[in-house]
Simulated scan of single mutants.
Amino acid sequence: MGRFAPMNAAYRVWDGEQMCYCGDEGICLSIGELGSIEGKVFGWSVWLRGYGVIAHSGDLKSVLMNGTDQFQTHSRLKRIYAGDIVKQEETAPGGLFGPEPFIGEVKMIDGSWCIVNEKKEECRPLFSETATNKVIGDVYQNPELLEGAE
């Protein structure tokens, strides 16, 4: 029998066509055993009450993403997720990274949430006491935002 994700955990799933947020009306995440009785396979599935499974770890197109503990700055509470494209701007004069905005993908690296810009070969912490973060898209629906991120 599968286990349900805790209510305080934040997850979302890209199903190949749209983003589904666990906890939205009727959307549930199940993590546990999937597959045959003989060989136990562990994975996840997202299902919609009344319709059944809409995405799962074995469908080769869906991606499960964890929510970070950070929210977009100066906005209603909008959680930042792995795979989001974030624009980070320093607010303090002489800030740690300078005045230029930094754009990159949110990733978990060695246990810390980071903003990664592959083109610049640079990585910055998502959390900053002297910078603001704004979600400008995600890598599935807006990959072009990373192509121009310099």
Rank of each mutant, 00 (worst) to 15 (best):
P125D: 10
S30C: 10
S112V: 11
P99F: 07
H56N: 12
L146K: 06
A9I: 07
E147Y: 08
C20D: 09
D59S: 01
T130W: 08
Y21C: 01
S30G: 14
T73Y: 03
V46K: 06
D15F: 02
M108V: 11
C22E: 09
G94L: 03
G83F: 00
K107Q: 11
Q18W: 04
S36H: 10
A82Y: 02
R49Q: 15
K87I: 04
V63N: 03
E144N: 09
E129C: 11
G94Y: 08
G50D: 01
Y51T: 08
L64G: 02
P93C: 06
G50V: 01
T130S: 12
Y11R: 05
V86I: 02
E147F: 08
G83E: 10
L34F: 06
E129R: 09
L77T: 04
S36D: 11
E150I: 14
C22N: 07
A9R: 14
E147S: 14
K40Q: 14
L34R: 10
T91L: 12
E33A: 15
M65E: 11
P6V: 07
G67Q: 01
D110W: 04
E33T: 15
F97S: 10
M65H: 02
G137S: 06
N66C: 11
E121S: 13
G137A: 06
P93R: 13
E150S: 15
G39C: 14
S57H: 03
P6S: 13
K134C: 10
C20Y: 10
V139F: 04
I109S: 08
E150V: 15
F42H: 08
S75N: 09
M1K: 12
L48M: 07
K134H: 14
S45W: 07
F102G: 08
I103N: 04
S45M: 12
M65I: 04
E25S: 13
L48E: 03
I54G: 01
Y81H: 04
E25L: 11
W113Q: 04
T130A: 09
Q88D: 02
S30A: 12
R76E: 09
I31D: 04
D69C: 11
N8W: 10
Q70D: 12
V53Y: 01
V116C: 08
E144V: 09
R12M: 04
H74R: 12
A5W: 06
G148R: 02
T132V: 13
A82N: 13
K120A: 14
G50M: 00
P143E: 00
E118I: 09
E38M: 10
P99Q: 09
T132S: 14
Y51I: 05
Y21Q: 01
V139R: 00
